[in-house]
Structure formats: structure tokens, C-alpha cells
Nucleic acid binder design. Structure first.
Length: 274
DNA sequence: CCGACAACCTGTGAGC
DNA sequence: TGCTCACAGGTTGTCG
């Protein structure tokens, strides 16, 4: 579910409600997601004040002053703000209960597939083994066609799988890789290192526009993505190619094609993308 | 370093 | 209706 836009929408949903609030309880219902949950998370966070909520790639960082709680939503994770006494449903694995301005409120993590992660980072978050190797933020000013040309130099792998490599560029997952390449008019199978500067000059703004539009729409609601207040995102209504196999291209009318790259589905228009 | 692949886990929808 | 199979937003680790 969550690529950069969904994580950013989540961040913007929870930050205003929780920043400045203190933890009053922690409820962990399972011992581990992708990694074991931090031991003694309750005493670690007891009475701590949330200083801010940040994002790095698809990771959320909750700053508690003494350290950061790192949260990754994996494939199926979501965070919601709910009344603290609301019963937990299936796959609601973790609650962080805060003393909110209007009474106790729980930040509830749900993750059916359990590919997500919750870790406690005591030191500088950027030095952590999961964050240090991460690539550039695509919405940063530093992400330019010049930067991309150097980053892709010599690479033979298809541009689509390369865009999804978080050690080069963060935040672009399977949906937004296909969508960005359509907007740029680039064939997803094209070797990353042999794309002309002219085309890279189209790809950079295509990525930025795709991600920005998705954030503005509240993310994509594949199956069950929900915002922190429980409402849906609407970006999927703006998909050009993702999940539209056989349907007419919104630009030229030809049927959208589907292929597999690295065990993932790719969607594209054979006429508009070269 | 690069690229291909399996693995982690549950839910859902298609097809029979 | 019920069963089986393929596939789903991500990332790490391994291997050649």
C-alpha cells in the first residue's frame, strides 16, 4: 500500500494531532513484525513527549527527544488515530496512547501482512543501518536531471526497477514507477543508463508531479489504504496506467499493456512510451 | 558493484 | 458454495 505519498499523507495526518502530546500507555499485541518490536517499549516511551514527526523515504520517524521511533508500513500497514478505548480489531498490532488535547487518543498500527517495522533509534537516526544507505529524496531540489544522469550512468537494468531501488531514489514504489514513466513517455524496459538527457529532463518533473499530485489527492486507496482519520485517498482515480490492463490509454486510446519486471507487474502504453 | 531471485505473511479475487 | 492458485503497496539477504 504505502509508497512515499501514502507515508507523507499519514505523517501530515498524525503530526498536528500528536505533536507536543505525551505517551500515557503502549500496547503491543504481538512480539514482532519484520523485526522484533523493541523490548520494554512501554517503559522506553513512558511519559515521553512527541517533539515531531518526520519522514525519510517510506520511513516515519517519531521524535521523542531521547530517541526516535522508526515506523515502516511495509506492504499492508496503516496508522490511524482512534479513541483510546476503541477495541482493537484483527491485525491491530500496536497502540501508542497519547494524552491528546481532547482526551486520550491512540495511534494504532494495523499491518495484516506484517512486513512493516517498528524500531527504537537511540542515536542519530540518519546513522542507522536502515536509513544510512537510502538514496535521494525525489521531492528535494537536489533531485535534478543532472543528478539522475550521473546516478544512472553505466546501469543496464530496466529504468522501472531502477526507479524502485530505495538505495538510489527513495519512495517510488510499484504504482508510482509505472505512473511516472507514463507521464515521461519512457518505456519501462529501457536500460537505465542509456536514456538520453532530454528524456531524463522529462522524467524528473514527471516523478515530482506524480508524487505531488498523489499527496494532494490523499494517496491511493488500493484495497484498504486509509488516512490517519480513516478516510480514503483518491489518487487511484487519476491512474494513467496502473491496474488498467486492456483499458484505453487516456492519451492515445490504445490498450494499456502489462508485463512483469522483477516479479512485479508493470503497466505501460506501447505507443506513448518509447 | 550489479542484477536476478527467494523469502517474509495474510487476504482477496478469479477460475473451476 | 467451496476449493486452489496467483497475486498484492516493500525490503533484505544471498548468489553468481
Amino acid at each position: 500500500m504505502p509508497e512515499l505519498p501514502e507515508v507523507e499523507v499519514t505523517r501530515r495526518g498524525i503530526a498536528p494531532a500528536l505533536t507536543g502530546c505525551r505517551i500515557t500507555a503502549v500496547r503491543a499485541r504481538i512480539p514482532a513484525l519484520r523485526y522484533p518490536l523493541p523490548a520494554k517499549l512501554g517503559s522506553l516511551l513512558a511519559d515521553r513527549r512527541l517533539e515531531g514527526v518526520h519522514r525519510r523515504g517510506k520511513y516515519l520517524l517519531l521524535n521523542f527527544g531521547a530517541g526516535h521511533l522508526l515506523i515502516h508500513l511495509g506492504m499492508s500497514g496503516s496508522l490511524r488515530l482512534v479513541a483510546a478505548d476503541r477495541p482493537a480489531a484483527k491485525h491491530d498490532h500496536l497502540d501508542l496512547v497519547f494524552s491528546g488535547r481532547d482526551g486520550p487518543v491512540a495511534l494504532r498500527l494495523r499491518d495484516p501482512r506484517r512486513f512493516g517495522a517498528v524500531l527504537w533509534l537511540g542515536g542519530d537516526p540518519q546513522q542507522h543501518a536502515l536509513l544510512a544507505p537510502l538514496g535521494i529524496e525525489p521531492l528535494d531540489e537536489a533531485f535534478t536531471a543532472d543528478w539522475l544522469e550521473k546516478a544512472l550512468d553505466g546501469l543496464v537494468a530496466p529504468i522501472k526497477t531502477t526507479l524502485m531501488d530505495s538505495h538510489r531514489i527513495v519512495g517510488i514504489g510499484n504504482i508510482y514507477a509505472s505512473e511516472s514513466l507514463f507521464r515521461a513517455g519512457i518505456d519501462p524496459r529501457r536500460p537505465a543508463g542509456s536514456i538520453s538527457p532530454l528524456r531524463l529532463g522529462r522524467l524528473v518533473p514527471a516523478i515530482k508531479q506524480t508524487l505531488t499530485a498523489a499527496i494532494a489527492a490523499g494517496g491511493s486507496s488500493l484495497r484498504d489504504f486509509i488516512q490517519s482519520d480513516g478516510s480514503a485517498g483518491y489518487f487511484q482515480q487519476q491512474y494513467f496506467v496502473y491496474g488498467r490492463t486492456g483499458e484505453p490509454c487516456r492519451n492515445c486510446g490504445r490498450p494499456i499493456r502489462e508485463l512483469r519486471q522483477g516479479q512485479r507487474a508493470t503497466f505501460y502504453c506501447a505507443r506513448c512510451q518509447r
